[in-house]
Simulated scan of single mutants.
Amino acid sequence: MKLGLNLSFAIKRWLGGEAMARIVKEELGFDTVQFTWDLVDPWWPTDQRDPIAREYAEVFRNAGITIESTFGGLASYTYNHLLAPTPELRALGKEHLKRAIDMTSQMGVKAAGMPFGSFSTADANNPARREKIYKEAVAAYLDLTRHAKARGLERLYVEPVPLATEFPSSATDALRLMTDLNAESAVPVRLMVDWGHALFTPLFGDEADMDYWMETCGDYIGAFHIQQSDGLLDRHWNFTHDGVITPERLSEFWKRNKLTDQTYFLEIIYPFEETDEDVLADMKASVALLRQAV
């Protein structure tokens, strides 16, 4: 398995390139990461934002750590973005990703991504409104692929999410979006499939199955988020917890599907009240379990 580390575990804790690189490389032994926008907000004024983002990237490169992509985090996920109910909110969602692409370019990183967006409850339950907003969102995203290419990015990612009011949530939704986007996109658009999302049984039932996802849209899956889950909520637990996703299951899936180029990004979100010492100890224990299963 090719293991990488989403930096979500570290938000509000080990800030700055030097502190983060030490934790990533020396304490946890990773050389591939996914940078979360929770560390540097794309909406910050560019004159202040870009030097901070570049400092992370430069220190990571000097430490031998590759930032494979940047990705939206908890703060970004709060908003409806491209599927919001009003044109003004959808325009702000487009601007959000545009700024993130600009920041990613400043870091010298070649890929960026986030969930596509979320309908309001009223729009989600209105098929005509839902389709109209979806088509506008696809057009907006295609414009962003052109912006990404102009800024030197080579790929964009969309993360499916486990809510019926969001898009894409199901594997068939994901396939539709990938087909619609990649028919005209300026750079490839791929899926960042989170195991905990895909195995969300209350929404997907019998289709809460990673094999089903591979059969349906596997050609478009560029990378994965991995987490421990009970299949009932989007837990983002570490593998020191019991649940339905074990390191052995991840390893077996990787080998059976002959995966080579994708990365399993460990994406763990801790309560802010957890002590730094407990978080780091738990991360080390979980990483050891994952590496034993490789």
Rank of each mutant, 00 (worst) to 15 (best):
P162F: 06
N238K: 09
F60R: 08
G243P: 11
W14P: 04
G16D: 09
E68I: 04
E207M: 12
D230R: 01
P188F: 01
D219K: 15
S170K: 01
L144S: 09
E68R: 15
D211C: 08
V158W: 01
F30M: 10
A137G: 11
S76V: 14
Y270A: 09
L181N: 02
S105A: 11
D209I: 06
T275C: 10
N182F: 09
D234Y: 02
R129C: 04
L15E: 14
G64S: 00
A124V: 07
G16A: 11
P42W: 03
L156H: 02
A208Q: 05
H225M: 00
H147W: 08
L156Q: 01
A288G: 11
S69W: 00
Q48C: 09
A19D: 11
M114W: 14
H147N: 07
A10K: 07
G117H: 04
Y141H: 09
V187A: 04
M192F: 12
D276M: 08
L199W: 07
T86F: 08
F272Q: 14
P188D: 06
R146K: 15
D276C: 11
F9Q: 01
E95S: 12
D123A: 10
F119C: 07
S69H: 05
W37I: 02
L199M: 12
L142I: 11
T165F: 02
T145Y: 05
A57G: 09
K2E: 09
A183H: 07
W237K: 02
H147C: 05
V189R: 01
T78S: 13
I269C: 06
M114I: 14
G152L: 11
R176F: 03
L177R: 00
I268Q: 03
R54I: 13
H236E: 03
Y77L: 14
L156K: 01
A293V: 12
L5R: 02
T86Y: 12
K2H: 12
C217I: 11
L3W: 15
A140D: 15
A171G: 03
S120G: 02
H96Q: 10
A148T: 07
R249K: 15
V279F: 08
F116L: 03
T46M: 14
L191N: 05
L163Y: 12
L82I: 10
V294W: 12
